[in-house]
């Protein structure tokens, strides 16, 4: 590759590296991912067995940098292991929404007609519920628990991706390269997945990153309400809810998991902003 002519990927990378929010986001997300991956190696932990009743409700100290909770459990180690749960929820829920939403949007936008009418109707129905209410209603029906919370938080995000993909397909399918592909005898499936989808991938990547932030927040909200992960799992929302009962005397129990949520969500939001700067320069920075 000649040094002067840069590929689009190189250009995007340059733009990303110039974006300070992108770099900050990548750093935060990177640290979280690393900590989550290394947790079982560096600090093996069994939430069911962990308790030390002699060390209950201790404020932060050198021994317990984030203090201990009502069962004498070290908050730091629980927050650390909680990152595994939250990252998994965020990635799985958004992966699910991305898959379902993109497929629905592709089909609706590409085929139009009654298929489009039907899918758009379904999307409108899902959008008629405020997101957290929809998630709560789904969990109320299928029962609480971390897997169900993932599903609920994912379903809530489906309309976002469906709409985005649909409008992208509508604008791309009229373009000449699609007509050319069709003239060469490409099948609908090939046109959709080899020609249309790759050209509309950038906004989807940006949205997926921002959606992970929302999913982590929503899942923590469900955990807080007792509808998501169940104790003794070290899930951040659950920890905040448990700490609520002690928080006039031991505020650190709720404080640190909340800070962890905020940092993780902030990281994905920043990363999403940076990716938008890099991949979608037209809509970036006014």
């Amino acid at each position: 590759m000649a040094t002067l002519a840069r590929t689009p990927t190189q250009q995007a990378l340059r733009r990303f590296l110039r974006s300070s929010s992108g770099k900050a986001g990548l750093f935060i997300v990177g640290v979280f991912v690393l900590l989550a991956l290394l947790a079982p190696l560096l600090a093996p932990y069994d939430p069911a067995k962990d308790r030390d009743l002699r060390a209950r409700l201790q404020p932060p100290s050198i021994e317990h940098p984030m203090g201990t909770d009502e069962l004498g459990r070290d908050i730091l180690i629980r927050v650390w292991h909680g990152s595994r749960i939250s990252l998994r929820v965020g990635v799985v829920a958004v992966g699910l929404a991305l898959l379902a939403g993109t497929l629905l949007g592709l089909v609706a936008g590409f085929f139009g007609g009654w298929v489009d009418t039907l899918i758009s109707w379904l999307i409108d129905i899902l959008l008629a519920f405020p997101s957290i209410l929809l998630a709560i209603a789904i969990v109320a029906v299928i029962g609480p628990g971390i897997e169900n919370a993932m599903l609920a938080v994912g379903v809530v995000q489906i309309p976002v991706f469906a709409r985005l993909t649909r409008s992208m397909v509508l604008s791309l399918k009229e373009q000449e390269f699609v007509t050319a592909a069709r003239a060469l005898g490409a099948t609908n499936g090939r046109i959709l997945f080899r020609h249309v989808l790759p050209n509309g991938l950038s906004p989807l990547i940006v949205q997926a990153t921002l959606s992970i932030a929302t999913a982590i927040l929503d899942a923590a909200g469900l955990g807080f309400l007792g509808l998501g992960a169940q104790p003794p799992a070290p899930e951040w929302g659950v920890m905040i809810a448990r700490g609520f009962q002690y928080f006039t005397t031991a505020p650190w129990i709720s404080l640190f998991p909340g800070l962890a949520i905020m940092l993780a969500v902030l990281g994905f939001n920043l990363l999403g902003d940076g990716l938008r700067d890099a991949l979608d320069p037209r809509t970036a920075k006014l």
């Binding site: 927040l217 909200g221 006039t248 905020m262 940092l263 969500v265 902030l266």
Partner: peptide, 18 residues
């Protein structure tokens, strides 16, 4: 503003009460 959108609302509520 970025911190504002990243904060869990129930946690902010608890901090305010505290």
């Amino acid at each position: 503003a970025l911190i504002g959108v990243s904060m869990p609302i129930f946690w902010l509520g608890l901090l305010l009460i505290y």
